[in-house]
Computed example of a mutant assay.
Amino acid sequence: MLISIITINYNDLEGLQKTMKSVLGQTYTDIEYIIIDGGSEDGSKAYIESCEQDLAYWVSEPDNGIYNAMNKGIAHATGDYLLFLNSGDWLLDDLVIENFVNFIPVEDIIYGKIKWIKEQKIWDDDFSNKITFKYFSKASLPHQGSFIKHKLFREIGNYDEKLKITSDWKFFVLAIYKYNCSFKRINMFISMCNRDGLSCLPESWPLILKEREETMKTYFPAFYSDLAIYENVEEKLLTKIHKLKRNQRFWISKALIKIFK
């Protein structure tokens, strides 16, 4: 099984070095490693060039943003599964890809656990076995912890370059709920992810919500209307809970968790 790993980078030499070392140090050898650099001027290009004997493809040239760079990587990938591991994120240990292959994957999308790091603080992030439509109204799957079958990009299309932050989220929503792609959670950590990316910044949330809302309205208008009503009821109930006594809040909260999760 050939695994394509795509790393995009722009002026992040230190992050790029961590990412590339984690991939090039894997025990599994059938890895096709692709680097898309946006024309960095911080020494990234020279570092990539020094490792080119271990790369399937690399380029350093200006691009039109994150998703344009990721799409460039897809265009040169030939693997059975693709993993997007951007500069500053790294595989958790040298056995990650070998352990993934040992699961004998067949599903269209296979995702695992990740760890976040910010200012030396590290915390785990796990994802449910059950990914509901409502889940995607508030969250996504991690592209740094998700192996995607190559054929999906031919069937669904590449990442939407008109979106600035949520194109990978949109891809997962369409794959699972429009194209009925299969998915599976595996109980293993995939990567360590930097928490200071664009999508993690508080000031990005208005645009994230706007892009998600436009996608929902375009592709799932009926579901979006139901979801809006559903969330409005949830919000009102949770607001009222805070006015109850402590013991009442405990039991009602437990019931609501079962209803709304």
Rank of each mutant, 00 (worst) to 15 (best):
I122Y: 13
F153G: 04
F133D: 06
Y135D: 08
S137Y: 08
N129K: 03
E214F: 00
F136C: 01
R195P: 02
D126F: 10
H150N: 11
K217I: 15
L152C: 06
P221T: 04
H143C: 07
K210I: 14
N180G: 03
A222R: 13
D160T: 03
T166D: 12
Q144L: 13
K178V: 10
I190S: 08
E203S: 01
N158R: 00
F183E: 10
W123G: 08
H143Y: 13
F172K: 04
L209N: 11
H150G: 07
I176A: 02
K210P: 00
Y219A: 10
A175I: 10
P202M: 00
I208W: 01
S199D: 10
K151D: 12
T215V: 13
F223V: 09
G157W: 02
D126N: 06
K164I: 09
N158C: 09
D125V: 14
A222P: 00
E211M: 06
C193M: 13
G197N: 13
N187T: 05
K149S: 08
T218G: 09
F147G: 02
L198D: 14
M216I: 03
K170C: 01
K138V: 15
S191C: 09
M216E: 05
K217R: 15
K210R: 14
A139S: 13
V173Q: 06
H143S: 14
F189V: 14
L201Q: 11
E213N: 14
N129Y: 06
L201W: 03
K134Y: 09
F147Y: 08
A175L: 10
D126M: 04
F133G: 05
E213D: 15
F189L: 12
I190C: 02
M188H: 07
K210Y: 15
Y159A: 05
Q120M: 11
Y179D: 13
Y219W: 11
D196T: 14
S137V: 06
L141S: 02
I148C: 07
N180F: 09
E213S: 15
Y135C: 01
L198G: 00
W123H: 05
L152I: 04
L141R: 03
N180M: 08
K130M: 13
E211I: 01
K164E: 03
A222E: 15
F172Y: 09
K134V: 12
K130E: 15
K178L: 14
L207I: 15
S199F: 11
K178F: 11
D124W: 09
T132A: 02
L209V: 10
W169E: 02
T132H: 06
S204C: 04
S167A: 09
I165L: 15
D196F: 00
E211R: 02
N158A: 12
Y179N: 13
E203I: 11
L209Y: 13
F153H: 01
K217H: 12
F172S: 05
M192P: 04
G197T: 14
A175S: 13
I186D: 03
E213Y: 12
D124S: 12
G145N: 02
E155W: 00
S128G: 09
L152Q: 04
T132F: 01
F189I: 14
F153P: 00
N187I: 09
R195I: 07
F136P: 03
A175K: 04
D125S: 12
V173N: 00
F220P: 02
L207W: 05
T166F: 03
C200N: 15
R154M: 12
D124F: 12
E161L: 08
